[in-house]
């Protein structure tokens, strides 16, 4: 239970992949113009990251480690992710056209979303989430899920701000990336207050 709470708070607030660690910045800046698209992207990412965390853990522990091929981790994982994205896309197209219509456009972008690969690699690294502890299959999957929720949170918050800013009298030269970057920077300041929260809750040493 403790582990899961640490993962939940840690991945969403304290070590938010976007706001506290600089992962997934490209989709964060690229798909945050509208709240609705941000939500769609967030859901697609959540779906893929959760599945990818599950599968890459299995790949690591049942293929790479027994065969002593750990140095091929990057290749193996990114291949899993690319294939997974393709499979999810095709499956959605056949099984749930309505869901495909909502999420389909975002799926190809997810392959190059570095949060997916970063989470998968962190999950199988000893001590990445809790000192001296390697995550099990369930915890890894949950970790991926929470990281994705954290990504979605940051994405939707930025989208909300950008939508509002469209109606304000922001100078022309701030529009697009420069403005989004500075907004993201100010948002990141707000996320800094959560530092040390886990130690305070006596969840980690």
């Amino acid at each position: 239970m403790n582990t899961f709470l640490v993962i939940l708070i840690g991945q969403i607030l304290i070590n938010n992949y976007v706001m506290c660690q600089f992962y997934g910045i490209c989709p964060f800046l690229g798909v945050s113009k509208k709240v609705d698209t941000a939500l769609g992207m967030g859901m697609a990412v959540t779906f893929v990251i959760t599945l990818a965390s599950f599968i890459t853990w299995l790949v690591q522990n049942f293929i790479l480690v027994p065969l002593e091929l750990e140095y091929l981790q990057t290749i193996a994982f990114i291949l899993v992710i690319a294939v997974l994205v393709q499979v999810v896309e095709n499956a959605l197209k056949k099984l749930s056209p309505s869901l495909y219509q909502a999420l389909g456009v975002y799926l190809p972008l997810i392959t190059t979303n570095c949060v997916v690969l970063a989470v998968a690699q962190k999950n199988v690294t000893e001590g990445a989430i809790m000192d001296g502890q390697t995550l099990g299959l369930l915890a890894s999957t949950f970790c991926g899920f929470c990281a994705a929720i954290g990504f979605t949170l940051a994405l939707v918050l930025l989208a909300g701000i950008r939508e509002r800013m469209e109606q304000s009298n922001m100078p022309k030269w701030m529009e697009g990336f420069p403005g989004a970057l500075i907004m993201a920077g100010l948002m990141a300041i707000a996320f800094m207050g959560f530092g040390g929260l886990l130690q305070g809750l006596h969840l980690v040493g």
Binding site: L186, F194, Q199
Partner: peptide
């Protein structure tokens, strides 16, 4: 309350308000 009672910064007031500032467009929406 959460930051003051548990996080590493001694005072949570500014960070709490800043975080809610960030949430404001969504709350409005």
């Amino acid at each position: 309350f959460v930051i003051r009672a548990y996080a590493s910064y001694p005072e949570g007031c500014s960070f709490a308000i800043l975080f809610m500032n960030v949430c404001t467009p969504l709350i409005d929406r």
